[in-house]
Amino acid sequence: MPELAGPAAAWPVVESEHRYDGGWVVKLREDQLQRPGHSEDEPFSRLVLEHPGASVVLAVDDQDRALCLWQYRHPVERSLLQLPAGLCDVDGEEPLGVAQRELVEEGGFEAAEWTHLVSSYSSPGISQEVGHYFLARGLTEVGRGDFEPEHEEAEMQVRWVPVQELADAVLAGGPVDGHLATAVLVVTGRGLAGSARARD
Rank of each mutant, 00 (worst) to 15 (best):
P36L: 02
H38M: 03
S39M: 07
S39R: 13
E40I: 00
E40N: 04
D41N: 04
D41K: 04
E42V: 06
E42C: 02
F44C: 02
S45L: 13
S45A: 15
S45C: 03
R46M: 04
L47M: 07
L47F: 10
V48L: 01
L49T: 09
L49K: 12
E50C: 03
E50R: 13
H51C: 01
G53A: 00
A54M: 06
S55Y: 08
A59D: 12
D61A: 02
Q63E: 15
Q63A: 08
Q63N: 08
D64C: 05
D64S: 15
R65T: 04
A66N: 05
A66V: 08
L67F: 12
L67R: 11
C68N: 05
L69G: 04
L69R: 13
Q71R: 14
Q71G: 00
Q71P: 00
Y72Q: 13
Y72G: 03
R73C: 07
P75C: 09
P75G: 08
P75R: 12
P75D: 14
P75M: 12
E77H: 09
E77I: 01
S79G: 03
L80Q: 15
L81M: 15
L81S: 07
G86R: 12
G86W: 15
D89C: 03
V90D: 08
V90H: 12
E93G: 00
E94T: 11
E94A: 14
P95E: 09
P95K: 09
P95W: 11
L96P: 01
V98K: 05
A99G: 02
Q100L: 04
R101Y: 11
R101M: 05
E102W: 08
E102N: 03
L103D: 07
L103F: 10
V104C: 05
E105S: 06
E105R: 09
E105D: 14
E106T: 00
G107K: 06
G107L: 03
G108K: 09
E110L: 02
E110R: 11
A111Q: 07
A111E: 07
A111N: 06
E113P: 00
E113R: 12
E113I: 09
W114T: 02
W114L: 02
T115L: 11
H116E: 12
L117P: 01
L117R: 06
S120R: 14
Y121K: 12
S122A: 14
S123E: 14
S123R: 13
P124D: 06
P124M: 05
G125H: 11
G125D: 14
G125E: 15
G125P: 00
I126A: 08
